Computed example of a mutant assay.
Amino acid sequence: MSDDPLAEAGYLDVPPSAGGAASRSWWDANADEYLDEHGTFLGPADFCWCPEGLREKDARLLGDLNGRRVLEVGAGAAQCSRWLVGEGVDVVATDVSGGMLEAGARYDTDTGRVTPLVQADARVLPFADGSFDVAFTSFGALPFVPDADRVHAEVARVLRTGGRWVFAVTHPVRWAFPDDPGEAGLTATRSYFDRTPYAELGESGSVLYAEYHRTLGDHVGELVAAGFVLDRLVEPEWPAGHDRTWGGWGPVRGARLPGTAIFVTHLGRPPG
């Protein structure tokens, strides 16, 4: 049982510093449970962009990686980077959670692949300016911090000019609907423009978990401010025959509403 049992959950105004700091401890505590539930779908060494099942082997959103140095931000157990290692790519995986990286090390043992793993906050990356050609994240880091602009700025700093930054997030329109994969999730109940985070509080009043909503305009504005150019916005459709539910994702909602937004961008100018 948790030392601070869940007492309240919902759309709550929480201090930004507390919400941003909650991510590390939550993922440390829930890494094994998360991988028990989703690990088979994700695979120990497969690059899945989203619950719709879009794979990098098919989409090739990162472009030609031959001779490129690649950074994964918010890697979790580094399944995506591990797949890239198998493709011969020079890649480094980072995550704020030691628990997730420990799981990644176990996956390395299971697969026989060596994936460079670095524990780091995405807002303070421990790499020199212009160290990478490509950076990406699949639902990592950005949803769990109140200041995603700092993540974009750090990625811009460590990318070379012209470098590609690709990230997948929950499609912003989904925040207007209940997090239900069935018929109940098809009726909007909140304003799309309400940016109050979803948060979970313990009995002590501490923030245990926080997830942040940004509109499409917010995402684009933050990208532009960091010097990125938006090349493509990918909204994966729910594939026929895919009947797996994942939280609010599933075939009922997937047939009518987008669940994921993938931003494909490049750095148009040096940061600053």
Rank of each mutant, 00 (worst) to 15 (best):
D121T: 09
A122K: 07
F127H: 10
A128T: 13
F132W: 14
V134F: 01
A135D: 00
A135K: 01
F136L: 05
F136D: 04
F136H: 08
T137E: 06
F139M: 11
G140A: 07
A141R: 06
A141K: 07
L142F: 11
P143R: 05
V145H: 06
V145P: 03
V145Q: 10
D147C: 02
D147W: 01
A148M: 12
V151I: 15
V151E: 02
V151K: 02
H152D: 10
E154T: 07
A156S: 14
A156C: 10
R157T: 13
V158F: 08
V158R: 06
T161K: 04
G163Q: 00
R164K: 13
R164Q: 08
W165H: 14
W165F: 15
F167S: 02
A168I: 04
V173L: 15
R174L: 13
W175R: 01
W175N: 00
A176I: 07
A176L: 08
A176W: 04
A176R: 05
F177P: 03
F177K: 04
F177A: 06
D179Y: 13
D179M: 10
D180C: 07
D180Q: 06
E183L: 12
E183T: 11
E183D: 13
E183S: 08
G185S: 10
G185I: 11
S191H: 09
S191T: 06
Y192S: 12
F193K: 06
F193S: 14
D194T: 09
Y198A: 09
E200W: 06
L201K: 12
G202E: 06
E203G: 15
